[in-house]
Design a protein around this nucleic acid. Structure first.
Lengths: 141, 141
DNA sequence: GTGCGTGCAAAATCTTTGCATACGC
DNA sequence: GCGTATGCAAAGATTTTGCACGCAC
């Protein structure tokens, strides 16, 4: 049985390689809600004895975002981070310290409702809502 | 009459320099809603015969964000971008079509409250909250 | 076999930092 | 004058790219 990743790739004349599979597997293993930088993805794969070059990680991450498997976050911690785009987990939100980059996650039913209302008012089909709250953490004040 | 920028700086043992004033002036001139990268800020200032080094721009942008005068956008490509954080307008949020990129803005009092609560629960000093709602717009369905 | 994908290393970006000097306070 | 801020250049961090080879199809 071909994976959704394989199907999507072939539809586009592309190929399923072990590297691409491993990157997506990693995100599925850690689950949605955890985000990794390119460097961290590389570290995880190297640890599990998989040799994937950093250049390939970058190429693969961009590809998986374009294909809708991953979601690209841009928090203020230097470097972009990626996470699995999951449809069966509630959206989660981020509280980020603008000074040190410390990040806390939280959930909010209200935010989901606001997002739903906003989408409906313009006739959009809602996919996800993410709230970014920025401030200064206690240690940095 | 001292500017708000000057007051804030002095409160913290910091100094109002021509460079800091010029960077903030630039954002106030173009108005909130227009965003610039560090490189672009540098370009504008050099054009207007002001010699400010790129290193100082980076230092100043981070400072102005920490002080709450600017807002760091999480847009996709390229480096980070900044825009004036206007205090007489509430934070505005974005409804984005994942397919065509069409973007609508909206405001929400509830989101501000949720952000405030989240910041308080971790002891953060709140600077801003932005909600991103992603979906598919009517034209793309 | 064809041509897309990978690895490698170099290059291109983007951002930060050390240190001497300048200047706001 | 004291101590913060700047400019410069160099270093650091992050991401992209050219090219030859390997492998999915």
């Amino acid at each position: 049985m071909p994976s959704p990743l394989e199907l999507e790739l072939h539809q586009d004349g592309r190929r399923l390689t072990p590297q691409r599979q491993k990157v997506l597997d990693l995100f599925q293993t850690i689950g949605s809600g955890n985000h990794l930088s390119a460097e961290e993805v590389h570290g995880h794969l190297v640890q599990s004895k998989s040799k994937v070059s950093l250049a390939t990680i970058y190429r693969t991450l961009r590809l998986l975002v374009r294909m809708g498997f991953l979601h690209e976050l841009e928090l203020n911690e230097g470097g972009h981070r990626f996470e699995l785009l999951s449809h069966d987990h509630p959206d989660h939100h981020h509280l980020v310290c603008l000074n040190c980059g410390r990040t806390e996650e939280f959930e909010s039913e209200e935010v989901v409702l606001v997002g739903k209302k906003a989408a409906e008012s313009e006739g959009f089909k809602l996919i996800e809502s993410t709230l970014n709250v920025r401030g200064i953490c206690p240690d940095c004040m």
